[in-house]
Design a binder for these strands. Structure first.
Lengths: 122, 122
DNA sequence: CTCATATTTCGAGAATAATGGAAATATGGA
DNA sequence: TCCATATTTCCATTATTCTCGAAATATGAG
């Protein structure tokens, strides 16, 4: 993860509408969502949506594939993981004041994610 | 962490110069760095620096205090931690594809941070 | 081939952000 | 008080981004 691509990702996500798109795509999982469905779900014009999808794709945060008449967009998990890793490790130097609290977040999150089987009985 | 403040932080960091400022302040630690020193270190005009410091401060990512003639800026660790937590937990729903690799980052990072004593001999 | 659906591309206007020079403010020292 | 240092504020210019209507492209069905 280079600093420049991190800046691109951050500024892509630093926009209300685009953050909403990305969140929707993460929730939808790897199967993705068609552009038209996104537009309806978020109530945005198809052309602004297209522009924002393009920005997210150019930043590497989402991928697209055509399926019949629709174009399906999906979140790029690796890219997001890379961005978070960059922020923790490179940007923040692994400062414990920043990173330590995240251990708790990870503990809370691992075991309740959409595709994650619980390892210990709750 | 509300979504709006996350957007503000992301767009504040989604700028070359501001990301560089923030990284410098994280490296510097809680004692912070005077504005003039930042300007010299990053070779930017004092007035653009001031504008960018203002944007970072308004996003909650940095704090400032006056010390004599200088104004000392320092990274707000809690804010950054909150942003990362929001991205993992709320934005990404704790998707294991995104969050699991971060366990390794945390493991690598805890034990080599600037203010962190090693727990096991290297 | 024609038509309907899905999405993108084009283009113009408005809004916002970035840049840098010059002046203003705040502090400390002589 | 006067001066030097440190930083911010003000202002104008340029550049970028956002928004939305309209037209263009791509696909599949009849």
């Amino acid at each position: 993860m280079e600093s420049m691509s991190a800046v691109n990702m951050l500024s892509a996500l630093g926009h209300d509408g685009r953050l909403a798109i990305f969140r929707l795509l993460v929730k939808a999982g790897p199967q993705g969502v068609a552009a038209g469905q996104i537009a309806r779900a978020l109530d945005v014009l198809p052309n602004s949506l297209s522009a924002n999808l393009n920005i997210l794709a150019h930043a590497g945060l989402i991928a697209s594939r055509r399926e019949g008449r629709s174009i399906i967009y999906s979140a790029d998990y690796g890219a997001m993981s890379g961005l978070l890793g960059f922020l923790m490790e490179d940007c923040c130097n692994g400062a414990p004041e920043i990173c330590s609290p995240l251990t708790a977040v990870l503990a809370r999150v691992e075991g309740c994610g959409p595709a994650c089987a619980p390892k210990a009985p709750a």
